[in-house]
C-alpha cells in the first residue's frame, strides 16, 4: 500500500507492505541508518523513534499505523553538531557512548522523557527507560539525562 508520512520534516511516499515494521522503512527506504535493530520484539529499544511525539519502538510498529504521521529519528533530533538537542549536548559532555549501537534509541527515549517529565529524578529515569545497553554505559546515561534536564531548564523559552 501507499504510505505517506513525514520523517524529520521531509515528506515521503513509499509503496510498502502495510505490515512491514516502520524500522525497515526508516532504515532501508528512507536510508536513515541511525535507528537500529536489536531484538525485533520491542524489548531492547534500539529502534526507538518519535511518532507524532509519542515514543515508539519501530521494530514492532507496522507502517500502516504511521500513515500521515510525523516521525522523528535520531537524525532529526537536532539540526547538526552545532545545534545539538540538550540530550545530545549532555551525551557529549558526559561521553556516554562506547560501541554506540544502542545510543540512538536511548537518546530518543531520554528526549521523550524530558518532554513528559521536565525534572526527572534518578528513580524516575530508572523506572521509565527500559532500553538495553550491553557495553554498560548505564551510569553515564543516568548522569547525562539529569544534566540534559538542567540544560533544558536554562534554555530560553521559544
Amino acid at each position: 500500500m501507499k504510505i505517506a508520512l513525514t520523517i524529520n520534516a521531509v515528506a515521503y511516499t513509499f509503496d510498502a507492505d502495510p505490515d512491514m515494521p516502520l524500522l525497515w522503512l526508516i532504515r532501508d527506504e528512507a536510508k536513515l541508518k541511525g535507528t537500529k535493530f536489536g531484538c525485533g520484539m520491542a524489548l531492547c529499544g534500539a529502534c526507538s523513534v518519535h511518532v507524532d511525539g509519542d515514543l515508539i519502538r519501530s521494530c514492532s510498529y507496522p507502517v500502516q499505523l504511521a500513515q500521515g504521521k510525523t516521525i522523528t529519528t535520531i537524525e532529526g533530533l537536532s539540526t547538526g553538531p552545532t545545534h545539538l538537542h540538550p540530550i545530545q549536548q549532555a551525551w557529549r559532555e558526559v561521553q556516554v557512548p562506547q560501541c554506540g549501537y544502542c545510543q540512538s534509541g536511548f537518546m530518543m527515549a531520554a528526549a521523550h522523557l524530558l518532554e513528559v517529565n521536565k525534572h526527572p529524578t534518578e528513580d524516575d529515569i530508572k523506572n521509565s527507560i527500559t532500553n538495553i545497553c550491553r557495553c554498560g554505559t548505564h551510569p553515564r546515561i543516568l548522569k547525562a539525562i539529569l544534566l540534559a534536564a538542567k540544560y533544558k531548564k536554562d534554555e530560553p523559552t521559544q
Binding site: 541508518k33 537500529k36 537536532s78 547538526g80 557529549r92 561521553q95 557512548p97 554506540g100 540512538s104
Partner: peptide, 21 residues
Amino acid sequence: QKRVDLDDKILGKADYGIDTD
C-alpha cells in the same frame, strides 16, 4: 581525551556493519 567517534555516535552517523547499503 574525548573519544574520536563521540560526535558520530551522538548524531546517529557512525556506520556499523548493519548500516551498509
